[in-house]
């Protein structure tokens, strides 16, 4: 039993670390604001959730697990808002290269 949960915890922690790492790589490597926002909105969230799951599987005590659940809920609630705020601030202050706007009349 404890071997199974330990293995599952290890998989979660490693995958979570990979996603968090790739988020960091993306922020450094991508060349424009919106691409960086994508990285912050997705692999970072899943990496965080996987790390929390791994920690919960290792700790297995009720008060720590409830705390981890709270962290996960707030992460899911705030991360899209944060991504949206950065993106719309970039759009409104003209920090976006004009060639990224050319698809904009697709719906007209």
């Amino acid at each position: 039993m404890s071997l199974v949960t330990d293995a599952a915890a290890a998989v979660c922690l490693l995958l979570g670390a990979f996603f968090s790492f790739s988020a960091g790589v993306g922020v450094v490597r991508f060349d424009n604001l919106f691409a960086r926002v994508h990285v912050v909105a997705k692999p970072q969230v899943l990496g965080m959730l996987l790390l929390l799951t791994g920690v919960a599987l290792r700790l297995q005590d009720r008060s720590s697990v409830t705390m981890l659940v709270l962290v996960a809920i707030f992460q899911l609630m705030t991360s899209p808002v944060a991504a949206h705020m950065v993106g719309s601030a970039g759009l409104r202050t003209g920090k976006v290269e004009p060639e990224f706007l050319e698809m904009d009349d697709g719906g007209r």
């Binding site: 990979f18 996603f19 790739s22 988020a23 790589v25 993306g26 490597r29 991508f30 060349d31 424009n32 919106f34 691409a35 994508h38 990285v39 997705k42 692999p43 969230v45 899943l46 990496g47 990224f100 706007l101 050319e102 698809m103 904009d104 697709g106 719906g107």
Partner: peptide, 28 residues
């Protein structure tokens, strides 16, 4: 979708090559 999206974006971030071409799309 969250898992698929994370794998896609993570792979896009670590693979060699330039940033892919993005764009803004209005969705009614």
């Amino acid at each position: 979708d969250l898992v698929v999206a994370s794998f896609q974006v993570a792979w896009t971030a670590v693979r060699p090559g330039p940033t892919p071409r993005g764009g803004l799309v209005p969705v009614p």
